[in-house]
């Protein structure tokens, strides 16, 4: 664990399945991959990650499967060249992993109601109180740039999934151009969305380089530090 991670409380989960949903391009995959990394490093339970993104062709969490495998995280992804396809493949292992409830399973779901629809076919596998259903919010994305916009995307996702959210992840950023102010601005909107929906903010996520200088007192919430894994070919791993 890097020192910046020690400065914040890290997210902790009692429940066995953590489902990550959100608006298209809100940062679900990067959050999922890093959550898997951090939870695996805590070492309490075996961690696995299921890539349920059936609408995005690039920059999917399955691209981080190797990095995660080194940390002991098992990736549930379609086999072989099917992993590179744009086909709506849901492997059966995911359903049984939801039912088994051993260890910690993170599910990275595709964006918007379109991506969340995949959950409706898995709905029966979830038993009550066994899962967290978390919404990633990025204020700097066009359709979730306001409280109203976020509420409307939340409604669409809940309807498509047939499941009710249990929390919010505040993930406002502008990639390399993220400032502390942008994160706080986003958190402000997340807090209002939380107040309007009655949902808790489970954690705030930010890049490790930002977390290193961020004052924990400004947030008073658990923080997931992100080491970006889904990089563009010209970007260097930090």
């Amino acid at each position: 664990m890097t020192s910046s991670e020690n400065r914040f409380r890290t997210p902790v989960f009692d429940r066995e399945v953590v489902v990550i949903v959100g608006g298209f391009g809100s940062g679900k995959s990067e959050v999922s991959v890093n959550l898997a990394r951090v939870l695996a490093q805590q070492g309490d339970k075996p961690v696995s990650i299921g890539d349920l993104d059936i609408i995005n062709p690039y920059f999917r969490s399955r691209e981080a499967a190797e990095v995660l495998a080194d940390l002991g995280v098992k990736s549930l992804v379609p086999p072989g060249s099917l992993a590179e396809a744009d086909l709506p493949i849901i492997i059966p292992e995911i359903k049984s992993a939801i039912q088994k409830r051993d260890g910690l399973l993170i599910l990275d779901v595709g964006g918007d109601d379109l991506g969340a629809r995949v959950l409706s076919s898995l709905r029966d596998a979830f038993s009550a109180d066994s899962y967290e259903f978390l919404m990633v919010l990025n204020l700097r994305r066009p359709f979730t740039s306001t409280v109203e916009g976020s509420l409307s995307v939340i409604g669409e996702i809940e309807d498509a999934a047939g499941l009710k959210l249990t929390g919010i992840i505040s993930n406002t950023h502008l990639m390399d151009d993220t400032t502390d102010e942008i994160i706080l601005e986003g958190l402000e909107v997340s807090r209002e969305v939380a107040a309007r929906t009655g949902l808790p903010i489970k954690f705030v996520s930010m890049e490790t380089s930002i977390a290193g200088r961020f004052d924990p007192r400004k947030i008073n919430l658990p923080v997931l530090t992100l080491n970006r894994e889904l990089l563009k070919p010209w970007e260097q791993r930090r």
Binding site: F24, R141, D177
Partner: peptide, 11 residues
Amino acid sequence: MARILMKGNEA
């Protein structure tokens, strides 16, 4: 207008 994060196709 504030800078926003967009996918190339959307932009």
